[in-house]
């Protein structure tokens, strides 16, 4: 508990953990939003979420290697991963979209393994990163240091999230996606081409992950086999926030980022993930209790 005392004695380090956590939480929230979209509309839990993120990172890395600024990688990864998502939907996901959840989990699990191995072949297992060339922001007389790329990533993530909300609310396609999510059969009767909606939803998710991956490669490092961390975080966030609740996803994403940092600081890095999962169990239990109480009132 020595570490807790440090935080009490020098609260400035709490600020450091909080800011860092919130900034990177936005990137997690982005990937989680994509997962919620596919889950809500197609009833598919996409296990390959993390691999989409990593592949997006590699696209941006390739853009940077080609001599362009990695910021350009964000739209390029978005578009490239949209195409990848489309191909994967037509080749695999379309065949399992109406089957039960277990089949689609297996299918996307297969996609995830395949993508890892292909990335390993193409990009090798070496660790890669893209340098944005941005500096560091100093707060509180230099005691709190924030990498400017994290702030940029935060803004990118929020802007993309905002654009998605507008797209879902205003555009015809967005409305069709929401209609399909509510009741696919009714939407089909009313003339929505649900097959196309599914394809676009899945590709859109891949594209969102691609953009998230572009931010990840600029903030941290990527490697073909570390996608799982992003899949797990997305899953957590969606479970906590629920489907179709964007504000919840954002709040859960930011909260998760901060909670992880505090857990890592106080308990040690080895308990960072364990703490997050324990938190998930507590939240689910708490929610269950609350629902039970409501049911009692209804009765």
């Amino acid at each position: 508990m020595d570490n807790l005392q440090i935080l009490v004695a020098a609260p400035v380090f709490s600020v450091q953990l909080l800011i860092d956590g919130i900034l990177v939480g936005a990137v997690f929230a982005l990937a989680a939003y994509g997962m919620a979209l596919v889950w809500g509309v197609m009833n598919i839990i996409n296990i390959a979420q993390g691999e989409f993120v990593i592949l997006g990172g590699y696209v941006t890395w390739a853009v940077a290697q080609a001599g362009f600024h990695p910021f350009l990688g964000v739209p390029v990864s978005f578009i490239a991963l949209f195409a990848v998502g489309w191909i994967l939907y037509r080749a695999v996901v379309a065949r399992v979209v109406d089957r039960d959840l277990f089949i689609s989990i297996l299918a996307t699990f297969g996609i995830s393994i395949l993508m890892q191995q292909v990335m390993n072949q193409v990009f090798t297992a070496d660790v890669q990163t893209a340098q944005s060339g941005l500096g560091t922001l100093f707060l509180f007389e230099g005691q709190v240091t924030v990498a400017q790329i994290k702030i940029v990533a935060f803004v990118f993530a929020l802007a993309l999230g905002g654009a998605l909300v507008v797209f879902m609310r205003r555009s015809r396609l967005g409305k069709a996606i929401r209609a399909t999510a509510q009741n696919a059969r009714a939407a089909r009767i009313l003339g929505v081409d649900t097959g196309r909606v599914y394809a676009i939803t899945y590709s859109l998710n891949a594209a969102i992950c691609g953009a998230a991956g572009a931010l990840v490669v600029m903030i941290w490092v990527i490697q073909p086999f570390i996608g799982l961390a992003y899949t797990v975080r997305s899953f957590m966030i969606v479970v906590v926030a629920g489907l179709g609740n964007l504000a919840g996803v954002v709040a859960a994403g930011l909260g998760l980022g901060a909670a992880e940092n505090f857990a890592g600081f106080i308990l040690g890095a080895e308990f960072q993930t364990a703490f997050i999962f324990s938190l998930l169990v507590v939240i689910l239990l708490g929610r269950n209790l609350r629902l039970r109480r409501q049911r009692r009132v209804l009765r």
Partner: peptide, 14 residues
């Protein structure tokens, strides 16, 4: 002890 799917060392470095 850093996790196998290490992606962030912020907590440790803080």
């Amino acid at each position: 002890k850093l996790p196998k799917e290490l992606n962030d060392m912020t907590a440790t470095l803080t």
